[in-house]
């Protein structure tokens, strides 16, 4: 079995385990390359018939290409799509210009909290990876969160072999991270091999491309000539620029990401 097949197989096992143990599951789809890859593997895990909803947390500040892609493929793949928006915060004019930490927290984390309590989800599948950020490298595949979303990173449960934790107290939920062991380069090699459709913002136009996408307001493109998946793979094989270097919330200070994540950020 080749390396990419190994990664895929581990991911399928985790997805199926999460669904078996919790049933009331949803997957978060940001429409970025990682969660679109996860969605691709989820479709494989359930033979094309995904038995749970796919949730998009919509801050209203996403790139228009993201909305177009979401609507096209949710139809084509027959997804049960839930759009999660913090309408109250949006009506109050929450935006990155008034403070990035607060904007991420209310439009992403708070929106997610509302949707979870509405649907009573016990587990959420997320496509975070260890190599994205040092804090994410500390994650478990099955990671419990308290009712108010706190991640107790100082005392995480042991996780041995593929015997994942499957019981939690009533008020808690699990974050499930089936892509934790993939790297950015693995994702692109897999996208190339499987011909997974992706948002075209990742491909270079006029010497710039996005390495990581989210809100149009808080993402900056990087210099690049990679206008095809093959060229992206080539570029990443040699780059020394960090993947999330264009993402504002990683930069404010060294521990912004730790604070956001302990509050329940993805």
């Amino acid at each position: 079995m080749d390396y990419l097949a190994e990664l895929e197989n581990k991911t399928i096992y985790i997805i199926r385990e999460a669904y078996n143990r919790f049933k009331n599951v949803a997957m978060l789809w940001s429409i970025g390359k990682d969660s679109t890859t996860l969605l691709w593997v989820v479709r494989k895990a359930f033979f094309g018939k995904i038995p749970f909803p796919i949730m998009h947390i919509d801050t209203s500040y996403k790139f228009k290409e993201i909305y177009e892609f979401r609507d096209k493929y949710s139809k084509e793949w027959g997804l049960n799509l839930i759009i999660s928006r913090n309408e109250k915060a949006l009506a109050e004019g929450t935006c990155p210009e008034k403070g990035k930490l607060n904007c991420c927290n209310s439009l992403k984390t708070e929106a997610l909290k509302m949707t979870i309590s509405e649907y009573k989800f016990k587990a959420l599948l997320l496509a975070i990876r260890r190599d994205e950020h040092g804090i994410r490298a500390k994650e478990r595949y099955f990671s419990p969160r308290t009712a108010d979303f706190k991640w107790n990173y100082k005392d995480q449960p042991a996780e041995l072999w593929d015997l994942y934790k499957s019981r939690i107290e009533e008020e808690q939920h699990f974050r499930i991270h089936p892509m934790l062991h993939w790297t950015e380069l693995d994702i692109w090699r897999y996208i190339e091999k499987e011909r997974i459709p992706i948002v075209n913002l990742y491909l270079a136009k006029n010497g710039k491309r996005y390495r990581s996408i989210g809100c149009a307001t808080c993402c900056a493109p990087v210099d690049s000539k990679a206008d095809s998946i093959r060229k992206i793979v080539k570029e990443l094989e040699t780059t020394t620029i960090a993947e999330r270097s264009g993402r504002a919330q990683d930069k404010e200070d060294a521990y912004t990401m730790q604070r956001l994540r302990s509050l329940g950020y993805m």
């Binding site: 260890r130 190599d131 950020h133 040092g134 804090i135 490298a137 500390k138 990173y153 100082k154 995480q156 062991h181 060294a254 521990y255 730790q258």
Partner: peptide, 16 residues
């Protein structure tokens, strides 16, 4: 990477 790890100069959790 954790703030507590840097201040106490120890590793608390496993990482990759």
């Amino acid at each position: 990477q954790l703030k507590e790890e840097r201040e106490r100069n120890i590793t608390i959790d496993t990482t990759q």
